[in-house]
Simulated scan of single mutants.
Amino acid sequence: MAIFKQLDVRVTSGKIRNKKGEFSNEVDCMIVEGEGEPIPYTDKFIYDISQVIAVLEIKKNLYKDELVDSYNKMHRIYKISDPDITNMKGMRDAFRHIMKKELPTYEELEIR
């Protein structure tokens, strides 16, 4: 209700596709611009990565397995994204402020 209708911004769920035709995992919640391609027999949509403004991963509990799953989903989105579009500076800054240390690289993560 708070989003201006003239902007054609929507809150939805579904998948993200890049220019090469690669897909993300299913996204719980994303803020997008414009119309997406409906996924048959669902209320979800496929959006081109250039239409995606923000991606939210929703978890009821913050258990290790769920956090690892969330990280892997977000990492997949990062991997299919265009390096020119993706700006990790904001995420790195937020992590640094909250955790008081630098954001680890994917290779540095120890997943048990």
Score class of each variant (00 low, 15 high):
residue 55 V to R: 04
residue 83 P to H: 05
residue 91 M to D: 08
residue 84 D to G: 13
residue 78 Y to Q: 13
residue 89 K to T: 15
residue 74 M to G: 02
residue 70 S to L: 07
residue 58 I to F: 07
residue 84 D to T: 08
residue 51 Q to D: 01
residue 67 L to V: 04
residue 80 I to R: 08
residue 80 I to S: 05
residue 92 R to F: 06
residue 79 K to T: 13
residue 69 D to E: 13
residue 75 H to T: 12
residue 84 D to H: 12
residue 55 V to Q: 04
residue 85 I to A: 08
residue 85 I to S: 09
residue 50 S to D: 11
residue 70 S to H: 02
residue 87 N to A: 08
residue 56 L to K: 03
residue 50 S to P: 01
residue 78 Y to P: 04
residue 52 V to R: 01
residue 69 D to K: 13
residue 54 A to K: 11
residue 86 T to M: 14
residue 90 G to D: 12
residue 92 R to I: 00
residue 73 K to H: 14
residue 61 N to K: 13
residue 60 K to R: 14
residue 56 L to Q: 08
residue 50 S to N: 09
residue 53 I to C: 05
residue 81 S to I: 01
residue 65 D to C: 07
residue 89 K to L: 11
residue 45 F to D: 01
residue 79 K to F: 06
residue 74 M to W: 05
residue 44 K to C: 06
residue 58 I to W: 00
residue 64 K to E: 14
residue 47 Y to I: 03
residue 62 L to P: 04
residue 48 D to N: 15
residue 71 Y to H: 11
residue 47 Y to G: 03
residue 50 S to F: 00
residue 46 I to Q: 00
residue 63 Y to A: 11
residue 70 S to V: 09
residue 68 V to G: 00
residue 89 K to R: 14
residue 81 S to C: 09
residue 87 N to H: 11
residue 45 F to C: 02
residue 51 Q to A: 00
residue 56 L to D: 09
residue 60 K to F: 10
residue 88 M to K: 10
residue 91 M to A: 15
residue 64 K to W: 14
